[in-house]
């Protein structure tokens, strides 16, 4: 590590958040850059299952080697400059300035995205499908990386296999954007418009009996709802708050309860203590929730909890269709807006 100037940042105050743009739900995130603030690569990223799926010693070592190589190229003036985005500092975000900076509180990473989303919601400009489903999982394309080897494909399934991606291919570009690490790939994959039908990946491969590496541009057809991920790990930062957690019912369970197979019926698994104290709702663990204001199905939501988060606003008063002890009843529920920790 002596080949680097190592800097550890624990508060975002004073940091250009447009330059260092990353999914703030990563507990750790790294960049390798130069003194001109040209970013060579990112190291970080995660999937819904774990914060460490894509992080390990080998891949970090590889990323650092790539960072050093990019730096040598830059010093030799052989690396094109990338355009720097317009700077944006946390103090320029009104809610964040008033509620955090002016109170001399720590500007934690997650507050950047949380306040940004809240401001958008207040302004009526929040696109929940984009904001909630940040950092889509490349496994939805059928790409399973050999993580210690960086962007080398360990196994190609689904859309990736159909398009011709093979085991051993090394991904080097998404669209026209060069990528060195999983962090790069996930960051730029996230920039893909949610209504896109295709993306292009460039891979480097060595064919059998051929010593020379070859580049191949591969067009992938994006699967239906390719951007969709399990939101559990970022659940606490999405408005509105509902103060219960649930699991989607299986098709069999829905059938047993006489509920539509395409519905978002779900079983309550946890009730937040504030629900009762603040008079928000009277749901109980074990309740089957199957409708919200009479609606029972949604194109995206697979639970009533998710339906409310996607389609309703903070402060809404809703009627939840519930099955409790085999009997159907309606329960009133009021949603709330986050107040943020700290």
């Amino acid at each position: 590590m002596s080949q680097f100037v190592c800097v550890r940042i624990t508060t975002m105050a004073g940091i250009d958040i447009n330059l260092f743009d990353f999914d703030r739900h990563n507990a750790l995130y790294f960049f390798v850059l130069n003194a001109d603030e040209q970013i060579y690569l990112r190291y970080g990223g995660r999937d819904s299952a774990s914060a460490t799926t894509y992080l390990n010693l080998k891949s970090l070592e590889l990323a650092l080697e790539q960072g050093l190589a990019a730096h040598e190229q830059w010093k030799a003036s052989g690396r094109p400059k990338t355009k720097r985005p317009s700077p944006l500092y946390p103090r320029e975000m009104d809610l964040l300035r008033r509620r955090t900076i002016n109170r001399r509180r720590c500007v934690e990473c997650h507050l950047i995205d949380d306040y940004r989303a809240q401001q958008l919601e207040i302004d009526g400009e929040l696109n929940k499908l984009k904001t909630m489903y940040r950092s889509p999982d490349i496994k939805s394309l059928g790409i399973h990386l050999d993580v210690p080897r960086g962007l080398v494909v360990g196994e190609a399934k689904g859309a990736a296999a159909t398009a011709g991606i093979r085991q051993g291919d090394r991904i080097v570009r998404i669209g026209e954007q060069p990528v060195l690490t999983f962090g790069d790939l996930q960051h730029y994959y996230d920039k893909t418009p949610r209504d896109a039908k295709r993306i292009q990946l460039t891979v480097v491969r060595t064919n059998a009996g051929d010593r020379q590496e070859k580049r191949a541009r591969i067009d992938l057809e994006l699967p239906h709802q390719w951007w969709r991920t399990d939101l559990d790990f970022r659940n606490w930062s999405i408005d509105p708050l509902v103060y219960y957690e649930s699991r989607p019912l299986t098709k069999n369970e829905k059938s047993e309860h006489g509920l539509p197979a395409n519905g978002f019926a779900s079983q309550v698994t946890h009730v937040g203590s504030l629900a009762k104290r603040a008079g928000l709702h009277d749901l109980q663990v074990g309740d089957i929730t199957y409708s919200v204001d009479g609606t029972q199905a949604d194109e995206v939501a697979d639970s009533t909890e998710l339906f409310i988060k996607l389609r309703k606003d903070s402060g809404d008063r809703l009627k939840i269709g519930v099955i409790r002890d085999g009997k159907k009843l309606d329960i009133d529920l009021r949603t709330r807006r986050r107040t943020f920790r700290k």
Binding site: M1, Q3, F4, F31, V32, L64, C109
Partner: peptide, 11 residues
Amino acid sequence: KPIFLEFRCKP
């Protein structure tokens, strides 16, 4: 030298 920059929640 290049910079290795770490963002983390806690010091």
